[in-house]
Simulated scan of single mutants.
Amino acid sequence: MKNVSELLAVLNLEEKSSNSFNGVSETVGSPNVFGGQVLAQAVNAAYRTINNGRSLHSLHSYFLEAGDLNLPITYQVEIIRDGGSFSTRRVTAQQGDNIIFILAASFHKEEKGYEHQVERKTNIKLPEDLLSWNDLYKRYGFFLPKKVASFLKIERPVIFKPTIILNPLSKKDLKPYSDVWFKVKGDTNNLSLAEKQQVLTYLSDYNILAAALYPHASKAHFGNTQMASLDHAMWFFRDFDLDDWLLFSVDVPSTSNARGFTRAHIHTKDGKLIASATQEGLMRPKKK
């Protein structure tokens, strides 16, 4: 996928019936279906059953099985409730006889209320002064581990620019946080809020769990640690545009019992908090 139009084409599901939809998969460089794709396709399925103009404000989900890239995914939507202000949907994603993912999503009508938010970090470099993943691959690809280089060279519908370039060979523990600027490729004009939320949901599964390795970087890396998303939650606060850089700020409150827990805030470049996410993931040391 090269741009947002191609991404939305993947996220836009084929309707089988009023509450059942089929999706296809695109690789992001891993052997299994990307979790962000399943998340965003499930949001697309839930939105297709919302006919009252309400917008997604939160989602809670569990990854149950690794998805097969070569098989279609069927999304079944259960209409839980349409109340006076909120609508609730439950989405099940299935491949063959296996349920691989479940999601609960809540939609809210537009209302006026109080306003408050945490501020965006200001003591970090701006995207204009940073290298993208593609830049890093072109400059350092020959020196990187083969799996890292292969991952970085995949063409994506988004540009990622980490504020700190990590050296995978340094073997030094790092602080438990990361900040990554990202910008969607292609024409983002005239996208609906539903489409923008699906794109943001897709991108929210990048960069979030990797930060859980940072406090253990002297001994843990992707080569010797089994990593997998277990659950993912997200909250959407305000409408936003995708035509400029957004900041994905992650912190890691805890790692224990072969799991890592991460939190993220997503701000616009001018400081508006548009969404937050949490994820717990498996980070199991591989046996030698």
Results as ranks from 00 to 15, higher is better:
Lys272Asn: 08
His108Phe: 08
Leu59Thr: 03
Leu191Gln: 15
Asp231Ala: 07
Gln197His: 11
Phe160Trp: 07
Tyr140Val: 04
Ile208Leu: 15
Leu174Asn: 12
Gly271Met: 10
Thr163Leu: 14
Lys286Gly: 13
Ile50Met: 10
Tyr114His: 10
Asn257Arg: 14
Glu110Leu: 12
Gln95Thr: 09
Ser106Val: 09
Thr278Tyr: 06
Ser256Phe: 08
Lys147Met: 09
His232Gly: 01
Arg89Tyr: 06
Lys269Asn: 14
Gln76Arg: 13
Gly271Trp: 08
Glu111Gly: 03
Val158Ala: 07
Lys146Leu: 13
Gln198Asn: 10
His216Asp: 07
Ile165Lys: 05
Leu71Lys: 10
Ala93Val: 02
Pro215Ile: 09
Trp245Gly: 07
Gln94Gly: 09
Arg54Pro: 09
Gln117Ser: 15
Thr188Leu: 02
Phe160Asn: 04
Asn224Cys: 10
Asp187Cys: 06
Leu247Trp: 14
Phe101Cys: 05
Arg263Gly: 05
Pro31Gln: 06
Asn19Asp: 11
Leu39His: 00
Ser30Pro: 01
Glu15Ser: 10
Leu64Arg: 03
Leu126Met: 11
Gly186Asp: 01
Gln226Ile: 12
Arg263Asn: 08
Thr27Gly: 08
Arg48Glu: 14
Ala93Gly: 04
Tyr47Phe: 12
Tyr177Arg: 05
Asn123Trp: 05
Gln197Cys: 08
Leu242His: 03
Pro162Trp: 10
Lys121Arg: 13
Leu230Val: 14
Ser18Asn: 14
Ala105Gly: 08
Phe86Gly: 10
Lys196Arg: 06
Asp205Thr: 02
Leu166Gly: 04
Ser61Asn: 01
Phe236Thr: 07
Gly35Met: 01
Trp245Phe: 07
Ile79Met: 11
Lys2Pro: 02
Ser58Glu: 07
Pro176Met: 06
Arg156Trp: 00
Thr188Cys: 15
Phe34Gly: 00
His267Ala: 09
Ala220Thr: 15
Ser106Pro: 13
Phe237Glu: 07
Leu169Gln: 08
Glu119Met: 10
Asn3Leu: 04
Arg263Thr: 09
Leu246Thr: 02
Thr122Asp: 13
Gly96Leu: 15
Asp173Gly: 06
Val77Gln: 12
Ser204Glu: 10
Ser150Pro: 09
Asn32Glu: 02
Leu273Pro: 03
Lys153Asn: 04
Phe240Pro: 02
Asn190Trp: 11
Phe21Leu: 12
Gln37Ile: 00
Lys287Tyr: 15
Asp173Leu: 09
Glu111Met: 05
Asp239Glu: 05
His57Arg: 07
Pro72Gln: 02
Ala210Tyr: 12
Phe63Ala: 01
Glu155Gln: 09
Ser276Pro: 02
Phe63Arg: 01
Ala149Glu: 03
His57Gln: 13
Leu144Met: 11
Lys2Gln: 13
Asn52Arg: 09
Ala40Leu: 00
Phe222Gln: 11
Asn70Gly: 12
Trp181Ala: 13
Ser85Tyr: 14
Ser256Val: 08
Phe237Gln: 11
Asp251Lys: 06
Leu59Glu: 03
Val10Arg: 00
Thr27Glu: 01
Lys147Ile: 08
Val33Leu: 00
Arg54His: 13
Lys121Val: 15
